[in-house]
């Protein structure tokens, strides 16, 4: 039991990093109503850019900024595939993700890059968990505040309308294609930024680290939704929920490992859990809907 408790701060820190990543997923999946699979690649791009730049003597802050920008570039590619070239969003994301595999290998020149906290002046590291926790919480707060402002502006409202009802958005003079691109760019920038944090925290960047990132991100979004949805949440609470979702995910992950589950099965577990949660609203509607209520609404 003490082993589990000892693992807790680490789990929370990882959860916060993935919570930031999940905020990126939230922007595409919930706000824009697009399933963007670019993130499996752009997460690693963020890790690789940050690790390589720091390995080449860059300070951590500009290295993180470059990681953010690299992620944005990846989002732009998916955006162009989707809006200018008419490729369905899922496929556009998969294509970019595959391209990023090569790009990430080229950035690192090999399959992984070590970023040990003993040699490099990183911002957060698993060697100093409580410090990392504080810094991560601060990042979350700033990010949520900035996004709350952004999506409350005229431009940001237009992006929300684009995701909510594209026909309506266009009829109101909103450039929906441009907005989708901006959403994808912003989302992947945030995802790559969380990748930069993860590389520092874990002390390495590995080409395989992004595998299944979208599923973890979705899990955090879904858990977050389940946590806050009953409170008539506003945008801030929803984003907070997403971050908490990431934390809950990693605490559960730790418990499962603690209980002795074969770690090879963890990805299977994540995917099954996400599949079940995605199915619940559909099945609820199919088998538990109340036709009476529907009639009342129509009146």
């Amino acid at each position: 039991m003490t082993a589990l408790l000892n693992a807790l701060p680490g789990a929370v820190a990882q959860g916060l990093i993935w919570g930031i990543m999940a905020i990126g997923v939230y922007i595409t999946y919930k706000v824009l109503d697009l399933a963007d699979l670019t993130v499996d690649g752009s997460m690693v791009t963020g890790m690789a850019v940050c690790a390589m730049l720091m390995a080449n003597g860059w300070n951590v802050w500009p290295a993180m900024l470059m990681a953010f920008l690299a992620g944005m570039a990846a989002g732009l590619v998916t955006g162009i595939f989707h809006t200018a070239m008419g490729i369905p969003a899922i496929l556009a994301g998969i294509l970019t993700q595959l391209m990023l595999w090569s790009v990430n290998l080229k950035i690192m020149g090999k399959a992984n890059q070590a970023l040990p906290a003993r040699t490099f002046d990183v911002l957060i590291t698993q060697l100093r968990k409580y410090e990392a926790l504080l810094i991560l919480v601060a990042f979350c707060v700033v990010l949520i505040a900035v996004l709350y402002w952004f999506f409350g502006t005229k431009f940001g409202s237009g992006i929300r309308a684009t995701g909510c009802n594209e026909k309506m958005a266009r009829a109101q003079g909103i450039d929906t294609n441009f907005n989708k691109c901006v959403g994808l760019i912003l989302s992947n920038g945030i995802v790559a930024f969380s990748g930069a944090l993860l590389a520092q925290y874990s002390g390495k960047a590995d080409i395989n680290d992004g595998r299944g990132a979208i599923v973890i991100g979705l899990a955090a979004v879904i858990i977050g939704d389940a946590l806050v949805s009953r409170f008539r949440p506003n945008f801030i609470i929803r984003l907070l929920g997403v971050v908490l979702g990431g934390v809950v995910y990693y605490i559960v992950y730790q418990i499962v490992i603690f209980l002795g589950l074969d770690t090879d099965l963890l990805k299977m577990l994540s995917a099954v859990v996400v599949a079940i949660f995605l199915a619940v609203p559909y099945l609820k509607k199919k088998y538990f809907s109340h036709p009476m209520k529907k009639n009342k609404e129509a009146a």
């Binding site: 409350g152 502006t153 431009f155 940001g156 409202s157 237009g158 309308a161 109101q172 003079g173 909103i174």
Partner: peptide, 13 residues
């Protein structure tokens, strides 16, 4: 959103 139809949608609230 309707009130902003035909205007530039900037970063003001």
């Amino acid at each position: 959103l309707a009130q902003q139809r035909g205007t530039r949608r900037g970063l003001s609230w």
